[in-house]
């Protein structure tokens, strides 16, 4: 039997890894969206939520480290799969066409590497903007001082480039998940002739929900929505 690390390097191992990390990331973005949607709650809800997270201390570091590992592994394996694929067919077809039927070839599945890399670039910028971006401090109802992330968000998304850039990326995220959700189930060996179509449909719905959920935020703020809800300094 192969050692655990050898197994992970094998084709099947790699695929299990994309699946595991993919599902991990799905779980993360569900939470992330839930937190982000607090922007639409009362004035302090979002900042409170963010602050609550930041107050977790070492637990947060562990979670963040786990997340970072998941992202990096996921990206690494995803890119290596794409690299292998180029090695595995040095000379391409003059004409190639999907046969349809049970095939899951779609723009979404064919563009995983593209949407993935866009997400990678996005993440770098995203974390730089929000996680490490300079913010003012606000006093929460409970009395603690916290970063005014909500303000930062509103500042950011009032600029068209940021607002529409995010929107575009969120659409690509939708596509990534459109194939990714179903694919992760299959990678994690949950493929059954009976439920497969159902999982695929659920995946597409999930992808649309995620994309729309996220992109709603920058668009809403850009078109001025954030100001009324925020009740804080809006220029």
């Amino acid at each position: 039997m192969p050692s655990f690390s050898d197994a992970l390097k094998s084709q099947v191992g790699r695929k299990i890894l994309t699946g595991v990390t993919g599902v991990g990331l799905i779980v993360f973005i569900i939470f992330h969206l839930a937190t982000n949607l607090q922007v639409f709650g009362d004035a302090h809800a979002f900042n409170e939520a963010a602050h609550a997270l930041e107050s977790m201390g070492w637990l947060l570091y562990i979670l963040e480290a786990g997340l970072a590992v998941a992202f990096l592994l996921h990206a690494y394996v995803g890119i290596s799969i794409w690299w292998n694929r180029r090695q595995a067919r040095p000379e391409g077809y003059e004409k190639y066409q999907s046969k349809g039927g049970p095939s899951h070839m779609s723009w979404a599945s064919k563009s995983m590497i593209f949407t993935g890399i866009v997400l990678l670039v996005f993440l770098v910028i995203h974390i730089d903007t929000f996680k490490f971006g300079a913010t003012e401090m606000v006093t929460l109802p409970g009395g603690e001082q916290a970063r005014d992330l909500k303000g930062l968000m509103i500042d950011t998304f009032q600029q068209p480039l940021w607002a529409f850039g995010y929107t575009a990326v969120m659409i690509l995220l939708g596509f990534h998940l459109g194939h990714g959700f179903w694919s992760a189930f299959t990678s994690l060996t949950m493929k059954h002739n009976k439920y497969s179509a159902l999982i695929y449909t659920v995946g597409v719905i999930f992808a649309v929900l995620m994309a729309v959920g996220f992109l709603f935020i920058p668009l809403y703020i850009y078109f001025g929505g954030g100001c009324e809800a925020a009740l804080i300094q809006c220029q």
């Binding site: 694929r85 999907s98 070839m105 194939h179 990678s187």
Partner: peptide, 30 residues
């Protein structure tokens, strides 16, 4: 190459073999 679950293989397979076989292979491998 690796399998990315495109299922194009199932579509062209003259015997209509389902990619459930691939999922099963992964399960047994794990």
């Amino acid at each position: 190459g690796d399998c990315s679950n495109y299922a194009e293989c199932e579509a062209v397979c003259p015997k209509g073999i389902s990619i459930s076989a691939i999922a099963e292979m992964r399960r047994n491998y794990v």
